[in-house]
Amino acid sequence: MSKKTVFITGGAGFIGLHVIPLLLEKDYRIRIFDNMSRGDRGRVNELVATGNVELVEQDVRYGGAVHNAMKGCSHVIHFATVSINKSQADPYESIDINMVGNNNVFAAAADHGVERLVFASSASVYGDPKKLPMHEDDELNPLTPYCISKRAGEDLLGFYQRSKGLSWMALRFFNVYGPGQKIEAYYTSVINTFIQRLRSGQPPIIDGKGEQSMDFIHVTDLAKGVVAALESEQDNMPVNIGTGVDTSIAQLTKILIQAVGTDVEPIFNPRDVLVSRRAADITRAREVLGWEPQITVEQGMNELVKNQAR
């Protein structure tokens, strides 16, 4: 029996490169579809050398390219996106890649009759939450072109489900961090920036009072959630992928100061912050995917600091 092939847009990026090894362990073949503008070419070349991974260097904005490259694939994971901060600086590119790209990938998946499509949605679809933890059925209030495109992506999946029977899962990623992440990643760049400052003996600078919080999910745990969604018996719903723990920026700073082993006090910079607090309700992830996170924030941050020291 021929191996099943997973088509992964943006597969050469941070999260994709953590998901692919898990899929290879499960004996899938992989077709990475990536324009390589931010991809890790060295790592992709290593994966291609295994014989079970191929790279199609193309852009999700071109529907014909997406459709042709997806031929023969049984599953789709759609990661390709423009980051949240870039979407505010350049809404045109964001709408082009995130909206047109979403539609190209979803339409092709529906036309090819794939078994399952997993979409990287985002916790940012909730906007500033009215209550914690944030549940999938809560009101959505996306605030930027990026967040709006993620919500629209979920709605588009519903359209292709109704019109063509597409089977999908939309994973609302919370604040992903871990080894291999670029320092400019929007929400979690705070981790890398704090570590860099601490290593050079400088105090971290915290916006506001440091009461704003995030739900930091380690990329290793998140990757397992993606694979679980690809193979879950249930489908056609959004699922939060987080830890359920809200870690304030002030707490994060303490954890990192301890992990780096330095003795400084943070500086507080008075300014407004966009989203005040975040924590995922992960009941659905447990019940539907049989998934829950294993890595605590303390463990993950300590490991990140050790890896960066190498």
Score class of each variant (00 low, 15 high):
187 Y>N: 14
90 D>T: 11
211 E>H: 11
107 A>Y: 05
73 C>Q: 04
57 E>W: 09
121 S>N: 09
279 A>G: 00
19 V>F: 04
4 K>A: 12
7 F>S: 03
181 Q>P: 05
193 T>N: 13
99 M>R: 01
172 R>W: 06
83 S>R: 09
263 D>W: 07
174 F>E: 04
241 I>W: 04
98 N>P: 01
223 A>Q: 04
113 G>A: 06
11 G>E: 04
209 K>A: 13
266 P>E: 06
148 I>R: 01
34 D>A: 10
146 Y>C: 00
4 K>W: 10
277 R>S: 07
196 Q>R: 14
153 G>P: 01
15 I>D: 02
63 G>K: 11
218 H>D: 08
75 H>I: 08
30 I>G: 06
10 G>V: 12
298 E>S: 07
24 L>W: 06
177 Y>T: 01
227 V>E: 01
113 G>I: 06
26 K>N: 07
198 L>W: 09
141 N>P: 02
58 Q>G: 15
21 P>T: 04
105 V>H: 04
172 R>V: 05
227 V>D: 00
227 V>C: 02
309 A>G: 07
52 N>M: 12
92 Y>M: 12
2 S>P: 14
54 E>H: 11
31 R>I: 12
226 V>M: 05
227 V>W: 01
217 I>S: 02
30 I>H: 06
284 R>L: 14
65 A>R: 11
48 V>F: 10
273 V>S: 06
12 A>P: 00
52 N>G: 13
277 R>E: 03
238 P>H: 10
147 C>D: 12
174 F>R: 03
300 G>F: 05
116 R>A: 08
115 E>C: 07
205 I>V: 15
188 T>V: 08
135 H>F: 10
240 N>G: 04
121 S>C: 09
76 V>E: 02
206 I>K: 03
266 P>L: 08
190 V>G: 00
84 I>W: 03
266 P>G: 05
26 K>R: 14
37 S>K: 11
307 N>Y: 14
235 D>L: 14
58 Q>D: 15
280 A>C: 00
214 M>D: 03
189 S>P: 00
262 T>S: 11
66 V>R: 05
121 S>T: 07
131 K>G: 07
146 Y>P: 01
308 Q>D: 15
144 T>N: 02
255 I>G: 01
145 P>S: 04
259 A>M: 12
91 P>W: 03
96 D>H: 08
126 Y>K: 02
153 G>K: 02
73 C>A: 10
121 S>W: 08
90 D>N: 15
98 N>F: 04
211 E>V: 10
134 M>F: 02
250 A>V: 08
4 K>L: 11
5 T>E: 12
206 I>S: 01
129 P>Q: 05
49 A>D: 12
18 H>P: 06
306 K>W: 11
